[in-house]
Design a binder for these strands. Sequence first.
DNA 1: TGCCAGGCCCTCTTTAGGGCCTT
Length: 203
Amino acid sequence: MIAVIDFETTGLSPAMGDRATEIAIVLLQSGQVVDRFQSLMNTGKHIPSFIETFTGISNAMLASAPSAQSVMCEASRFVGSIPMAAHNAAFDRRFWQAEMNQADQPSTQDFICTLLLSRRLYPQSPSHQLGRLVEFLNLPKAVRAHRAMADAEMATALLVQMQHDLRLTHGVNQPDHAFLRSVQRCAKYGLPALFAKQLAHSC
DNA sequence: TGCCAGGCCCTCTTTAGGGCCTT
């Protein structure tokens, strides 16, 4: 099981005071979506006008949203100890840890990054932005990008496609979270050896 | 629109610099 997460936020850095505005999580098991979690969240932080335009999430929408603390407690129960994935995971991991910390919840989940994986697996793609990758791979594109669930669904489709390509193209039987983590960490020139090792291990 | 940060990756590199990606 892998939990694919996406945050919408007021900016790029929790260390600079930015906060999450929306969270979406898709649970993926054996290539199938088995559950979803989504919520706006009110931290009391003002959303800059550029971000309102960018995400479509307004200060008025968050005024009636549940508190960040209650949403993150619910998200923590939803994910448990399941390993997580995100596109540019360094970004979502920072907000996950910062918001969990604010809500007095643990945040020990391991993350894999579909951005780093796509740079390894699809070096021919002209761009590794989530939307551009989805177009490059002919995957279903979200109608409303830059909303949390739409982006989480696209990242999930991307992850499923990468697992499929690892099986079909590279003969890897079970590209689970642990194996994806080794692909992500593997230097580009080392990938064929990694695939061969996994193939031999699974035979 | 892109600035703000942080991490990865590439190269005209490694005693560094800049592009990409996330909102």
